[in-house]
């Protein structure tokens, strides 16, 4: 056993039989850790999403259509359209608030309009890019309100 197993080894001068139980435990621990690593690795394959900016998504449009993507950006002023009757929400996002970059249209159905949904708020959406260039989201999060910077008016 190496140094790291100090907590597992008993007093100096033990016989090999005494430490057998501890060795089993260390083995058990190692097995658990290896199993954990395997589980983490294998499950993350199927649950991975690309985490992209609007610019990156545009650049890799052809490759990304239909893939699982998480995207984040700032809501473009006056782009929010919400039909409360059918809970249909559409809005544009860009990488930097106020930039004239080509925006990305986000579409999501069946969700209430988030309270924080506002011009230049930061949105995080998970979903897939459609062939028509819009982004169909399954989930939409607005960045936690506690981090909002407020403008102070004179």
């Amino acid at each position: 056993m190496t140094r790291t197993s100090d907590w597992t080894t008993s007093a100096v001068g033990e016989t090999s039989g005494d430490s057998r139980a501890w060795i089993k435990f260390v083995m058990g621990g190692v097995v658990i850790l290896v199993a954990l690593a395997v589980v983490l690795y294998s499950t993350s394959q199927g649950n991975a999403q690309y985490f992209l900016t609007v610019g990156e998504l545009h650049d890799r449009q052809a490759e990304m259509v239909g893939k699982d993507v998480r995207i984040t950006g700032f809501v473009v002023a006056d782009s929010i359209s919400y039909d409360a009757r059918i809970l249909h929400l559409e809005f544009d996002i860009v990488d930097q608030a106020g930039s004239d970059q080509e925006p990305l249209r986000i579409v999501i159905d069946g969700e209430p309009l988030p309270d924080q949904m506002d011009d230049e708020a930061q949105a995080i959406a998970e979903g897939r890019l459609q062939t028509d260039g819009t982004f169909l989201a399954e989930t939409l999060m607005m960045k936690c309100a506690s981090k909002y910077d407020v403008e102070i008016e004179e």
Binding site: R3, D6, A11, V12, E14, S19, A21, W22
Partner: peptide
Amino acid sequence: RAALRAEHRLDSI
């Protein structure tokens, strides 16, 4: 680390 050795060993799993 040397002073942190266990006083007892594990008797049983």
